[in-house]
Amino acid sequence: MRTLLWQETFKLLKKKSTYWVTIFLVISGLGQAFLEKLYPHNKVLTAPMAFSSSFAATTWLIFIMIAACATVLSMEFQYGTVKEIIYQQYSRSTILMSKWLVMLGYSIYLYVMTGAVALLGKVLFVNDQFSLTAIDPYSNHLTFLQQWLASMSSSFITLWLVLSVVFLFATLFRSATMAVTAGIVAFFAFNAVSVLMFKLITKFNWVKWNPFNFLNFSNQITDPARHALTQLSDTQLLIGSLAYTALFLAIGLVSFRRQNV
């Protein structure tokens, strides 16, 4: 397993995109904070609101991680390198798990890095607009710092629910395009169908257990009023998100273990 983790990390670090992503996120985060400094009185996206999403980094991270997870597996099929990996002494399960773990590590790195950039942007550009220890009037009496941490950690859970679908599609179809599409659809098209879903939930209560409803976890953490729509508590959403993530990853694992290459 250690060798496989090292191999996956080596490949990730050899991709130029890995470095460009970091550069882009630093520029984007600081740029957004600077815009908040230039337009302190805008009502569309106030500085505390922008800060709570690490100056839009959490949205970018979804795109970036969908692409990274889709390609980390499908590139092996595309380049034929999957043969090279499998005829090593390791089992298929260990191979796939090492990819999950490296992607988990990569996503944690990106969250910590963008978090640090957000703190830097806040201190450099919008320090005078709000205090981290002040209470956020829109939340459940949380400070801006607590609100930010809650938002970051809940969006991380939701991100991995989406990524488990991406891994599943990458395994089933061996295609980055299919996997990226599945991820984008799972996350973004969800907003389009959520109105219909919420209506269905009011009619048929059991519909609340469908996996799309669990994509509301991070939204509900930052906006507790959403509970009325999801009909699930924060804890239920957390456990359900983790359970669905594990389920989708497990289905992908079973499929990968049976694949001839």
Partner: peptide, 20 residues
């Protein structure tokens, strides 16, 4: 197939990562 650590192979066509 733990014993495959004693085996080297080239099957069909060379597997190459273009970015390395």
């Amino acid at each position: 197939h733990e014993v495959l650590h004693e085996v080297g192979a080239l099957i069909e066509y060379p597997s190459i990562y273009p970015f390395m």
